[in-house]
C-alpha cells in the first residue's frame, strides 16, 4: 500500500477509536450475553441456531450502521471542518485521500467484527459447551459480512463525494435494503417481459447483491458454504467496492473545496 494511503487510513482508524465508535461493542456484548443466557434457559436443542442467527445479524446490523454513519462523513466532514485543506496542500493526491479514508473505515470495521466474532464464539461455547466442526462456517458468514461492509463503505463514500450527508445516508441505506433483496429482484426480472423486464433486470444487476453475501441462516443450520461461492463473493465485493471508490475518486478529483 502507498505509504500516504496507509498514514491516512491509520489516522481515520485512530479517529474512529477515539470518537468511541468501538463502544458499540459494549451494547453488542450485553445483547449477546443476555440472549445466550435467555436462550440457554428457554430453548430446547435450538440454542446454537438462535445464537448464530442473532449474533451474526447483530454483527451485520451494527457494522452497517457504523459503515453508513461514518462513511457518509468521511469526506464531507473533512470539507466542512476544513481539515482537508492542510492535507491536500501537502504532496497527497486526492485519490490517496479517498482510498486512505476507505481503508481506515474498513479497518475499523474489521477490528470491530473480530471483537464481535469473539463474542459470538464465546456465546456459542456457553450454549453448546464445545465447538463443533460446522462452526467453521460461521467464520465464512463473518467473512461475507466483512465483504458487505466493504461495499457499504464504498457506497457511502461514493454518495458523500457529491451529496449531502443526509441524502448520502438515505441513498446508501436504500441500496443496502434493496441489495438485500437482490435475489428476489433478479427472480422478478426473470419472469417480467418487455420494457419492465429490461428495467427490472438492469436494476437487479446494478444494485449490490447483498443477499448472495448473506449466509447467516444457512450456517446457523450448520450447512456448509460452497468454495465457489466464497471465491465469487470475494471477487464480486472487491470489484463492486473498487468501482464505487473509483466513482468517488473521479467526482472528488474535480470538486472545488469551497
Amino acid at each position: 500500500m502507498n505509504s500516504r494511503v496507509g498514514y491516512i487510513a491509520f489516522n481515520t482508524f485512530r479517529e474512529a477509536v477515539r470518537d468511541r465508535v468501538l463502544y458499540n461493542l459494549i451494547a453488542f456484548a450485553l445483547l449477546l450475553s443476555g440472549a445466550a443466557i435467555l436462550v440457554g434457559e428457554i430453548s430446547i436443542d435450538i440454542e446454537r441456531l438462535v445464537v448464530v442467527n442473532l449474533g451474526l445479524t447483530a454483527v451485520s446490523l451494527f457494522g452497517v450502521i457504523i459503515a453508513i454513519f461514518i462513511g457518509i462523513g468521511l469526506v464531507s466532514k473533512e470539507i466542512e471542518k476544513r481539515t482537508l485543506y492542510t492535507v491536500l496542500s501537502r504532496p497527497v493526491r486526492r485519490w490517496e485521500f479517498v482510498v486512505g479514508k476507505f481503508f481506515g473505515l474498513t479497518g475499523t470495521l474489521v477490528v470491530n467484527t473480530v471483537c464481535m466474532a469473539l463474542g459470538v464464539f464465546l456465546a456459542l461455547l456457553y450454549v453448546s459447551h464445545k465447538f463443533e466442526k460446522m462452526d467453521q462456517w460461521v467464520l465464512v458468514a463473518l467473512y461475507f459480512i466483512v465483504l458487505q461492509f466493504f461495499i457499504v463503505c464504498a457506497l457511502a463514500l461514493f454518495f458523500s463525494s457529491f451529496s449531502t450527508p443526509l441524502m448520502s445516508a438515505v441513498f446508501t441505506f436504500a441500496l443496502f435494503v434493496i441489495g438485500s433483496l437482490a435475489e428476489d429482484l433478479r427472480g422478478f426480472a426473470r419472469i417480467t417481459h418487455g420494457l419492465g423486464g429490461w428495467l427490472a433486470t438492469g436494476i437487479a444487476y446494478l444494485v449490490p447483491n447483498f443477499s448472495a453475501l448473506n449466509v447467516i441462516s444457512q450456517v446457523a443450520h450448520g450447512d456448509p458454504v460452497a468454495g465457489r461461492l466464497i471465491l465469487y463473493n470475494t471477487a464480486y465485493a472487491l470489484l463492486y467496492s473498487a468501482m464505487a471508490i473509483s466513482g468517488a475518486v473521479l467526482i472528488f478529483q474535480r470538486r472545488n473545496l469551497k
Binding site: N11, R18, Y85, T86, R90
Partner: peptide, 25 residues
C-alpha cells in the same frame, strides 16, 4: 500552508498532528 481560521483533527494531540503531517509531507 496555513489556512484562515485553521481546523485540525481534534482527536489528535499537537505532537501527533505534527507527526502525521510530517509523514504526509
Amino acid at each position: 500552508f496555513l489556512p484562515e481560521q485553521p481546523y485540525f483533527y481534534d482527536h489528535l494531540t499537537a505532537r501527533e498532528l505534527l507527526n502525521y503531517y510530517g509523514q504526509l509531507s
